[in-house]
Nucleic acid binder design. Structure first.
Lengths: 323, 323
DNA sequence: CTGAAAGCGCTTACAG
DNA sequence: CTGAAAGCGCTTACAG
């Protein structure tokens, strides 16, 4: 059996409470005693059992990060910064890819109730009942899961407007929109909204392909889009997978970029994978969003008040996909 | 306070032991009693406290996945499949990006000792002392951390040979090698070995740039490589970031691919991000490696014997970067 | 400043 | 088949 706090206490000739106190520094301990305890700890190579401490304190020190898929640049980046930020506050991160299976999402709520985790960053595309969400410390991204669940988002509407104005300024006359629509209410919907508004304001007719699809189907959407609107000279691509698939499909069709077709991508996951500025794009502030969402969750877990909606600013990167 | 097993026992008019038994199905329980207990559980919405159960059973049900950075396609994919496989066995995954900080790696070992996690998949580029690694259930990828720590790898040497033979067959005469060298002994080193062997066998002079670098410095390596060996007509790029950076740098310099320069990438993370077959490449069997490494770790945690080295097969994908 | 004791919520021999 | 009790390894009032 591993050595316990009892062994340390015996060796140092003190009570277990005293060992606990030097370990956690609650009340002050006599310097002399402290030294003896520390010595015993070192000698016995004592490592406190976290499970016991957590049971006693009723806090797991773990937060769950639930995303549809970690092996997607946006979520991989999110995971990276979430872990980094959580670590600063002494929390660990349990990673769960829901794979869009609702049972796996509901499971996380159960794990909060079972005290396995203290709370969760809950990125889902499903609806969950108030009943299930109740009393669970949760935070979300780009959408309100329910009335009092805080979420972090970015200025989707304004950023999309700016991106489109940029394309127009660069001479585009027939601008399309290609994306994948979220299943539920989400700030991402504001991108299409902004697109339609800008088109109307400029008297341009909309060319949209924005359906609910699964990861992997982007190529069909893009093929379909290019076939339906062969005359487009500018495209707003929502999501970097979509942008990349579009870029490559266009190249394969012999369409020159940016000469025949200009593209603005909406996302923020490119820079991380290779330090180029390949696509002209709206970059989501993934790092800031990740850090903020972690802080919100911890505030919530620890019982502090948090704002319901936190909006962060995107940035605009000019790359080689526009003139 | 949340409802406990005691509340359920009282409500059902049984002892707590009985409740535990219907929960965990250890010994058989009278059907009638069982029904009463289940009813009480449902009525009280009882969810067993995992922390208590874990303390008692001395198992956390959590494994740690330690990688240098999760926001890298290879590791993001690894994380995805690791979590999926662990879930099948009832284990959760704690995610840690070491960011190549050795303290953060050592910290994981401490967390195994503190019973916070049952074991770890330990992907590191540092050396750790036998003393530190001792008694920790660990498994690794592409390198033996220490004598009795199992690891999973793929056929780096053979796969590299095949890739080079392919370039030669496609007419390349001046083949280069660009990569980033691991800090420590690793199966990845066999790629350069294979490259040098093939060059020698074909009487070709080696053109290598393979230094120890940090993520983000790929662009400098590539620029340097292209400047040093402006005459290359074929490149073996180790790692997909390297391949991508090379591809883009070449394009920017007006080098046509595959006409002027053919590239074979070594990795296996492209397919996941967009369903193209963009690069000709050796694909690492990430999914298989992930699943296998999880099974090895669980076997080790649960006290079963495991092989020290498990080798899996790569596959070869022909894309548009070769003729 | 410090020790003895109660208790966190479970599981598991033990005795019946 | 089942209940009472001990114990997992901590933390934290409580009393001194």
């Amino acid at each position: 059996m591993a050595t316990t706090i009892k062994d340390v206490a015996k060796k140092a000739g003190v009570g277990v409470g005293t060992v606990s106190r030097v370990l956690n520094g609650g009340q002050s301990v006599n310097e002399e005693t402290k030294k003896r305890v520390l010595g015993a700890i070192r000698e016995l190579k004592f490592v406190p059992n976290q499970m016991a401490s957590r049971l006693r304190k009723d806090e797991s020190g773990i937060i769950a990060l639930l995303v549809p898929l970690v092996n997607h640049p946006f979520f991989a980046n999110l995971a990276y910064f979430v872990e980094d930020e959580a670590d600063k506050f002494g929390y660990s991160v349990l990673l769960v890819s829901s794979q869009r299976r609702i049972e796996k999402e509901t499971n996380i709520l159960q794990r909060i109730r079972s005290r396995e985790v203290d709370g969760a960053i809950f990125v889902t595309h499903f609806e969950h009942s108030e009943e299930d969400l109740k009393d669970c410390p949760l935070v979300s991204i780009d959408r309100p899961l329910s009335l009092n669940i805080p979420y972090v988002t970015s200025d989707n509407y304004e950023a999309t407007r700016k991106a489109l104005e940029f394309l127009i300024q660069k001479g585009c006359k027939r601008i399309g929109y290609v994306g994948s629509k979220p299943l539920v209410d989400s700030e991402v919907l504001k991108r299409e909204e902004a697109y339609l508004d800008v088109m109307k304001e400029h008297g341009m007719s909309p060319r949209v392909k924005n359906d609910v699809i699964f990861h992997g189907d982007e190529i069909n959407v893009v093929e379909n889009f290019l076939q339906t609107y062969p005359d487009v000279d500018g495209v707003f691509a929502s999501g970097n997978t979509m942008a990349q698939v579009l870029f490559e499909a266009a190249l394969q069709k012999g369409i020159r970029i940016p000469d025949d077709l200009q593209i603005v991508a909406y996302d923020g996951s490119f820079k991380q994978w290779s330090d180029n500025r390949y696509y002209t794009s709206v970059e989501q502030p993934i790092e800031a969003m990740a850090r903020e969402v972690v802080r919100l969750l911890i505030d919530k877990i620890e019982g502090r008040d948090v704002p319901t909606r936190t909006m962060l600013n995107t940035s605009f990167q000019i790359g080689i996909t526009t003139k």
